[in-house]
């Protein structure tokens, strides 16, 4: 009798019980690991962990290193242009496909396939294409255009734009897919009304359709900014952060400090700064969506 009631009590708790392994793992992963890295960043660790408190000196040292400052600046330039470029190309492709074109799924697959390919593969192939000795410049020279010059990837001032271009190539299909889904959810009456008013097609898109799907643009922006902040493999495969430090990004600095130079406290400090950048994007977004949900809830009673 008591055994059965124990069994049934356990059965009642099944939903909570099945969550325990995940909860423990998530707590370890999210809370413990974060605090752990945070502590390493203010510890006396060098090549090996030394958990004695060492103060915030590593943060100061980090921000005094030119390489880190350049990498953080690169993050802003890369992040901004990568997101804007992906949204622009993504919108353009979505609008084109939205014109009841033939073979829609073929076009869609072509624009979306880069997303399935790793940054390592993407970076390797585009490095070959952009490199003056093997890529576009070489092909143009061989075609007879001897003075053709396309060496952005080895040019300190232009190399970052190679990374941005490649990033957009990789991500714009993702933006396209979500924006296309948005275009298809727009109320037809709105469009009809604008057409009766005599507005032209590009104008209808710009003034009526795209403004109504702005929440999608915000969602895509947040996802892409996240990708941008975490960018690592693309740059490793494409430029290895060079020439010099021209295309270095924070994630590369973290790896070098932790595993190449044996400065794990400073590496941890750099990792914390990546988390800070990410929080600056995610926290406002979460607050905003919650606020929106609340507003929506009030409107519907």
């Amino acid at each position: 009798m008591t055994k059965r009631s124990l069994g049934s009590r356990l059965a009642e708790k099944t939903p909570q019980l099945v969550l325990i392994p995940t909860l423990v793992a998530a707590f370890m992963y999210v809370v413990v690991f974060s605090l752990w890295t945070l502590w390493i960043s203010v510890s006396q660790s060098t090549l090996l962990p030394n958990m004695a408190y060492g103060g915030f000196g590593e943060y100061a040292a980090l921000w005094q290193s030119k390489r880190w400052v350049v990498s953080y600046q690169n993050l802003f330039v890369f992040g901004a242009l990568y997101v804007v470029g992906s949204l622009f190309i993504g919108s353009l492709l979505a609008i084109l496909i939205d014109q009841r074109v033939r073979f829609e799924s073929v076009w869609r697959t072509i624009f979306l396939y880069p997303l399935a390919i790793s940054f390592i593969v993407t970076g390797t192939v585009w490095r070959w294409i952009f490199h003056p000795q093997t890529g576009v410049e070489r092909a143009l020279n061989d075609l007879g255009w001897i003075s053709a010059n396309f060496d952005w990837i080895t040019d300190r001032d232009m190399a970052l734009y190679v990374v941005i271009f490649t990033g957009i190539w990789h991500a714009s299909g993702f933006a396209m897919a979500l924006i296309l889904a948005g275009l298809r959810s727009v109320d037809g009456d709105l469009v009809k009304a604008a057409q009766i008013d005599g507005a032209s097609m590009p104008r209808i898109y710009r003034k009526v359709i795209l403004p109504t799907i702005w929440p999608i643009f915000i969602a895509v922006t947040v996802v892409l900014l996240q990708f941008a902040i975490k960018t690592y493999d693309l740059v490793v495969a494409l430029t290895q952060g060079g020439p010099g430090v021209a295309t270095t990004v924070p994630a590369i600095v973290v790896y070098d400090l932790m595993f190449q130079r044996g400065q794990i406290a400073q590496g941890a400090a750099a990792a914390v700064m990546i988390l800070v950048a990410l929080a600056m994007v995610i926290v406002p977004y979460v607050l905003w969506t919650n606020w929106q949900a609340k507003k929506e809830g009030q409107r519907h009673g």
């Binding site: 909860l23 890295t37 990792a271 988390l275």
Partner: peptide
């Protein structure tokens, strides 16, 4: 159940956590 939103929130934070924060641990 009670606090289910907190449990969900904790789990989904793992989506955002950058890998660099977890390498040494």
């Amino acid at each position: 159940f009670k606090y289910d939103a907190w449990v969900f929130g904790l789990i989904t934070l793992g989506v955002f956590l950058p890998a660099q924060m977890t390498l040494l641990p």
